Measured scan of single mutants.
Amino acid sequence: GPREVTMKKGDILTLLNSTNKDWWKVEVNDRQGFVPAAYVKKLDSGTGKELVLALYDYQ
Rank of each mutant, 00 (worst) to 15 (best):
K42R: 11
Y58I: 03
G1F: 13
D22R: 13
Y56G: 04
D22S: 10
M7G: 01
I12T: 06
P2N: 15
T14K: 11
P36V: 04
K42G: 04
L55N: 02
L13E: 00
N29Q: 08
D22N: 13
K42P: 10
A37I: 04
Q32M: 10
V28I: 15
V28G: 07
R3C: 14
S45C: 14
M7S: 01
T47R: 06
L16D: 00
A37S: 14
A38G: 09
L55M: 08
R3H: 14
T14G: 05
W24I: 04
D30I: 03
D11K: 01
L43P: 01
K25C: 13
V40E: 02
V52F: 05
E4F: 15
P2D: 12
L55F: 03
L55A: 02
V35A: 01
Q59H: 13
Q32L: 07
F34S: 03
N29Y: 07
L16P: 00
G46K: 10
K9I: 07
L53R: 07
D44M: 11
L51W: 08
K49P: 14
G46Q: 13
N20I: 05
K49E: 11
A38M: 11
Q59G: 12
V40M: 05
P36M: 04
K21L: 08
L51T: 09
G48W: 06
G1Y: 12
K41L: 13
D57T: 05
D30C: 10
V52T: 01
E50L: 11
Y56K: 14
V5G: 03
L16M: 06
M7L: 06
A38P: 06
K42S: 06
G46D: 14
K9V: 08
P2M: 15
V5L: 15
G1E: 12
V35I: 08
V28E: 05
K49I: 12
N20R: 07
K41Y: 08
Y39N: 05
G33H: 08
K9T: 06
A37G: 03
D57C: 05
K49R: 12
S18Y: 07
Q32V: 15
T19F: 09
D57S: 07
T19S: 14
T14V: 15
W24A: 02
W23D: 02
L16H: 04
E27V: 09
L13A: 06
Y39R: 04
L51K: 09
F34D: 03
V5D: 02
T19N: 11
T47P: 13
R3L: 14
L15F: 02
A38F: 07
L43G: 02
T6P: 05
K41I: 13
A54F: 03
S18L: 04
D44L: 09
R31A: 13
E4R: 14
T6N: 12
V28H: 13
L15S: 02
I12R: 04
